[in-house]
Design a binder for these strands. Structure first.
Length: 567
RNA sequence: UGGGAGAUCGUUCAACGGUAGGACAGCAGACUCUGACUCUGCUUAUCGGGGUUCGAAUCCCUGUCUCCCAGCCA
């Protein structure tokens, strides 16, 4: 019984935002001929994470809403950091999230020749020059926030000399870092981006697509606007840190006299206790702190997919977090809310015990087995029923028994009667303990045969219903219980490794009802009263492995914690 | 002590000169063969100071705080 057996939870209408308002206004004014064309422009230097999902949903969502188009374009101008593996993963992840770029899969590297020609055009117009300053010298010449920069001594080379030098840069005559092509703008500008920014640098590196065809590579600022322009992008949506780059973006398309898309900046996603820096995520992978980019603890889309997140839940989250220019941090519980909302509506229910303790029904016949009927989803009768085996020896959750029940605890304890879900009422008679450690080893109970199926003919009530599995029939499983990778709210911004959560992964030896035996990896379930779980790719019939996607909300845990504030 | 941007419940988004509203979180109940789900109710906010106006979160002035920018990264 897979999650897909249930209908999708409805996606509610998205709230508006300032970018949508701008587009609405542009449409009204007939700007861009009434077209809406966006793009999602990842650099293939890492895996996509939940922060990218916000951008993907925004760009593709806006295009969808206004009958426009959204391209997928790789911003691959730095061969030293980019790899095909990342390209492949990004394509897979955007698709998985549920978006389609049709035949519009592009690469900035597709435009290298055009970009080069435009650079020549700028040189001819006296607006670009080849500079022989070293990287350190360029930094010194750039000035500081308080003082203007100094002009490069090479700034006034003749057009002919610049043309010649640039051609030789391309031809590979010069070593890495020896020269750059720079735009001639204004070394006194208060905006550093306009202090004669570098357009091309020399990099004798193999590019994942163009191989060794080039040894000069264009910089982001020189590439991005033109790529947008070539593709006929109308609204170029990016994050806040590019606000200072907009004047340069505008400068290039204006001075080249080409189609001028409008750059609009919005706030990137921040999530509590979550680190969303590709650089640091890469470090976690390289240091082996996580098992890979798709470790279920990673905030990457591939990690979340493996963990059991549904694309619908992520989309719903992205649609509701809002888009603004405020630098904020979203509480992780909001993501979990949308996750649970989707999973609750769709995941088949099953009984599994994550931390088992043995229960023996003393008055139940030895060797007997009954098949008891359980519903697969309380809200979806069409998902059907299944039979769950019951016998004399069972496992229940260790946490569902207390020898000394605290106030408001109404699960199993000595002398108390509870219901075994879909089965019988049982009453705890006594416990067997380890004589040395005092640990409870077995709980002995009696059952009331008249309560078969879970209802008492005399109408008596029990305070609690607990889940169980039959010891003889249950399957062994490993339950991987995850918590946030980072303890610090900011995701450990500063010394992020110091903030690592030592309990981010705990493996439990659990037991699960046999109905899941043949389910494929990726199947999502609700373990009743415990949480949502998903079969991990590591799982096999010989060794079932489940990832806890998210726990169920747990009111009792709150009460319990409040009662003993030590925690 | 340059430039750019932003400040509204604990968090986040809205209100676009006319009753500060929603979501999450929290708290209290109801319901329940999942202490889940669902439902009901409640608490809590306009960064400070001046103006303009019948009326200001919104307009003006001023101050404060936060974020981003000195890669041949994106």
């Amino acid at each position: 019984m897979s999650i897909d057996a249930a209908p999708e939870s409805a996606e509610t209408p998205k709230p508006s935002n300032f970018i949508r308002d701008i587009i609405l206004q542009d449409l009204q004014n007939g700007k861009h001929g009434g077209r809406v064309h966006t793009r999602f422009p990842p650099e293939p230097n890492g895996y996509l994470h939940i922060g990218h999902a916000k951008s993907i949903c925004l760009n593709f969502g806006l295009a969808q809403e206004f009958g426009g188009k959204c391209n997928l374009r790789f911003d691959d101008t730095n061969p030293s950091k980019e790899e095909t593996e990342y390209v492949d993963s990004i394509i897979e992840d955007v698709r998985w999230l549920g978006f389609d770029w049709e035949d519009r899969l592009f690469y900035a590297s597709d435009y290298f020749e055009q970009l080069h020609d435009w650079a020549v055009q700028l040189i001819r117009a006296g607006k670009a020059f080849v500079c022989d300053l070293t990287a350190e010298q360029v930094r010194e010449y750039r000035g500081t926030p308080n003082e203007p920069g100094k002009e490069s001594p090479y700034r006034n080379r003749s057009v002919e000399e610049n043309l010649d030098l640039f051609a030789r840069m391309r031809a590979g005559e010069f070593p890495d870092g020896s020269r750059t092509l720079r735009t001639k703008i204004d070394m006194a500008s208060p905006n550093f981006n306009l202090r004669d920014p570098v357009m091309y640098r020399i990099l004798h590196a193999e590019h994942h697509r163009t191989g060794n065809q080039w040894c000069i590579y264009p910089m982001y600022d020189y590439t991005h606007g033109e790529s947008d322009s070539i593709e006929g992008i109308t609204h170029s949506i990016c994050t806040l840190e590019f606000e200072d780059h907009r004047p340069l973006y505008d400068w290039y398309v204006e001075n080249l006299g080409i189609h001028h898309p409008q750059q609009i900046e919005f706030d990137r996603l921040n999530l509590t206790n979550t680190m969303l820096s590709k650089r640091k995520l890469l470090m976690l992978v390289q240091k082996g702190i996580v098992s890979g980019w798709n470790d279920p603890r990673m905030p990457t889309l591939s990690g979340m997919r493996r963990r059991g997140y549904s694309p619908e839940a992520i989309r719903q989250f992205c649609a509701n977090i809002g888009v603004s220019k405020t630098n904020g941090i979203i509480e992780f519980s909001l993501l979990e809310y949308y996750l649970r909302e989707d999973l609750n509506a769709r995941a088949a229910r099953v009984m599994a015990v994550v931390d088992p303790i043995k229960v023996i029904i003393d008055n139940y016949p030895e060797g007997e087995t009954e098949q008891l009927e359980a519903v697969n989803h309380p809200d979806h009768p069409e998902m059907g029923n299944r039979l769950v085996p019951f016998s004399k020896t069972l496992y229940i959750e260790r946490d569902d028994f207390r020898e000394d029940p605290p106030k408001q605890y109404y699960r199993l304890s000595p002398g108390r009667e509870v219901r075994l879900r879909y089965a019988y009422f049982i009453t705890c008679q006594r416990v067997v303990k380890d004589p040395v450690t005092g640990e409870v080893l077995e709980i002995h109970c009696t059952y009331d045969p008249a309560t078969r199926g879970g209802n008492a003919p005399d109408g008596r009530k029990v305070k609690s219903t607990i889940h169980w599995v039959s010891a003889e029939h249950a399957l062994d499983m490993e339950a991987r219980i995850y918590e946030n990778l980072f303890l610090a709210e900011g995701g450990g911004d500063d010394d992020f490794l110091a903030s690592l959560n030592p309990n981010s992964l705990v493996k439990m030896a659990g037991k699960i009802e046999p109905s899941v035996r043949t389910a494929p990896a990726g199947t999502r379930y609700q373990f009743e009263r415990v949480g949502y779980f998903c079969i991990d790719p590591d799982s096999s019939p010989a060794g079932l492995v489940f990832n806890r996607t998210v726990a169920l909300r747990d009111t009792w845990a709150k009460i319990d914690k409040a009662q003993k504030p030590k925690g």
